[in-house]
Amino acid sequence: MGSLFEELEAREVAARRRAEELEAELAELSGRLDLARESLERLRIARETVGEVLAELTSERPAVAVDADGATVGGPVASAYAGAERRVVGVLTVPKWQPGMGPEVLPRVYRDILEVVADAPGPVRAKQIVPRIGLPAETGKIEGTPSKLKRLVERGWLDEDTPGMFTPARRRTAKSPNSR
Rank of each mutant, 00 (worst) to 15 (best):
residue 172 R to I: 14
residue 68 A to G: 00
residue 174 A to M: 10
residue 62 P to S: 09
residue 79 S to F: 04
residue 59 S to M: 09
residue 147 S to Y: 11
residue 126 A to T: 04
residue 126 A to D: 00
residue 122 G to R: 14
residue 24 A to N: 03
residue 95 P to H: 09
residue 151 R to E: 13
residue 121 P to G: 08
residue 130 V to N: 01
residue 87 R to T: 11
residue 76 P to V: 00
residue 142 I to A: 07
residue 39 S to D: 10
residue 89 V to L: 14
residue 174 A to T: 03
residue 159 D to C: 02
residue 39 S to Y: 01
residue 67 D to F: 05
residue 6 E to D: 10
residue 52 E to N: 13
residue 130 V to C: 06
residue 164 G to Y: 12
residue 16 R to E: 10
residue 133 I to F: 04
residue 131 P to F: 03
residue 174 A to N: 03
residue 80 A to L: 04
residue 60 E to R: 15
residue 79 S to H: 07
residue 180 R to A: 12
residue 148 K to G: 04
residue 60 E to M: 13
residue 178 N to T: 15
residue 56 E to H: 11
residue 130 V to H: 02
residue 29 L to I: 08
residue 119 D to G: 11
residue 152 L to P: 08
residue 36 A to S: 07
residue 172 R to L: 12
residue 84 A to R: 15
residue 29 L to E: 10
residue 128 Q to Y: 07
residue 79 S to N: 13
residue 32 R to F: 01
residue 43 L to Y: 02
residue 94 V to E: 06
residue 141 K to L: 01
residue 4 L to K: 01
residue 36 A to K: 06
residue 3 S to P: 06
residue 135 L to I: 01
residue 1 M to G: 11
residue 177 P to V: 15
residue 28 E to R: 10
residue 46 A to H: 10
residue 36 A to L: 14
residue 104 E to Y: 00
residue 14 A to F: 04
residue 173 T to R: 13
residue 154 E to G: 12
residue 172 R to P: 07
residue 43 L to I: 10
residue 7 E to N: 06
residue 155 R to M: 13
residue 119 D to C: 11
residue 173 T to S: 13
residue 89 V to H: 08
residue 32 R to M: 11
residue 81 Y to P: 03
residue 161 D to S: 12
residue 167 T to I: 02
residue 42 R to Q: 10
residue 158 L to G: 00
residue 65 A to K: 00
residue 43 L to W: 11
residue 115 E to C: 05
residue 147 S to D: 14
residue 4 L to D: 11
residue 4 L to V: 09
residue 12 E to K: 09
residue 145 T to R: 07
residue 151 R to D: 13
residue 131 P to R: 05
residue 46 A to W: 06
residue 6 E to G: 09
residue 2 G to T: 07
